[in-house]
């Protein structure tokens, strides 16, 4: 049982950077990135491929982050020129195209078969192979990432992000190169997502294209929508809440015939929560006058 709680903790530690990245983009800068999962996937694949070909974990980690960042930089250049929902949809398209590449370029990714047997990480010779070690190792990274995000949001950079979120035109009117700041935000969000992706690959030890669908982006979106209002702490708490709910369902003593209904019913519930929160917060949420806007 302790093991299973540890498992849930570790999954949370994987999802927290992923969700924090989206929070930075949506909550702080107003970039509705519906293709967030693409970067999670790119780094997961990169790290899986590098380590299965003998590159040590830490090297693969940094190479994968760099690669995801490079993709964000390249894709951001054209797509960041789009606003609002168009930006979101174009990123969604990008994510789906990436997934098709994972699926079809079998010579590289093994296609739908996925990559099994991804090695466990090791940290300068210390193997990370037990659940407590995973929890501590990933936990340290998560704390560092959260610390970084906290500082960014309180920094002058963070205030520019908020200004862009609240009113891009006035932000550019006071002489801010909004494109560059939006790109910085996308890049930071991407690096966080990429960290989660690497964690995912090396913890689960198996990845396949079906792990990187719109559903994962929706999961992060749900977390941000639930917790984003209270900033970073809210996002982290919301992650524990959502993941705990999701993983905990396995433990309910449900009859077997009911088993196949769990996953879709859980997704139905998530959908409902998204709708209800939007309905409830219609006035105050992610607009001017949000608590964060003054921060």
């Amino acid at each position: 049982m302790t093991n299973y709680l540890l498992h849930i903790l570790i999954v949370c530690e994987i999802i927290i950077p992923f969700a924090l990245g989206l929070q930075l983009e949506i909550g702080e800068t107003g970039l509705y990135n519906f293709g967030h999962v693409a970067f999670f996937g790119i780094s997961a694949y990169a790290s899986a491929l590098l380590t299965t070909h003998g590159i040590p974990f830490m090297g693969a980690l940094f190479a994968s982050l760099a690669l995801a960042g490079l993709f964000a930089w390249g894709v951001g250049y054209p797509i960041l020129r789009l606003r609002g929902d168009y930006f979101g949809l174009a990123m969604l398209g990008f994510a789906e195209i990436m997934r098709k590449i994972f699926l079809n370029e079998s010579w590289l990714t093994r296609g739908p078969m996925g990559i099994p047997g991804i090695p466990r990480p090791s940290f300068f010779g210390v193997p990370i192979h037990t659940l407590p070690r995973f929890a501590i190792f990933y936990g340290l990274f998560v704390i560092a990432a959260a610390f970084a995000v906290y500082h960014v949001t309180r920094s002058p950079l963070g205030r520019v992000f908020h200004a862009i979120r609240d009113d891009e035109y006035s932000a550019s009117a006071v002489g801010k190169d909004t494109f560059r700041f939006r790109r910085t935000s996308l890049l930071m969000g991407t690096l966080l997502a990429a960290l989660g992706g690497v964690f995912w690959a090396h913890y689960i030890t198996f990845i396949s294209p079906s792990d990187f669908t719109l559903n994962e982006t929706i999961l992060a979106l749900l977390i941000v929508v639930i917790g984003g209002r209270w900033g970073m702490a809210g996002t982290i708490l919301a992650t524990f809440f959502v993941i705990g709910f999701q993983e905990g369902l396995r433990f309910l003593p449900l009859p077997e015939s009911f088993g196949r209904l769990i996953a879709p019913m859980q997704q139905m519930f998530f959908g409902l929560v998204l709708v209800l929160i939007v309905l409830k917060r219609e006035k105050s949420w992610f607009h001017k006058g949000d608590r964060l806007a003054q921060g």
Binding site: Y32, G84, M265, Q267, M268, G271, L274, V275, E282, F286
Partner: peptide, 25 residues
């Protein structure tokens, strides 16, 4: 209808939620 005057992104998220709901239903 309650969201008539809301930001189009909020509507998009709400419709995403509805989509998720009915797909899984």
């Amino acid at each position: 209808s309650p969201l008539r005057n809301a930001n189009s992104l909020l509507l998009l998220i709400a419709s995403l939620g509805i989509s998720l709901f009915f797909q899984n239903l």
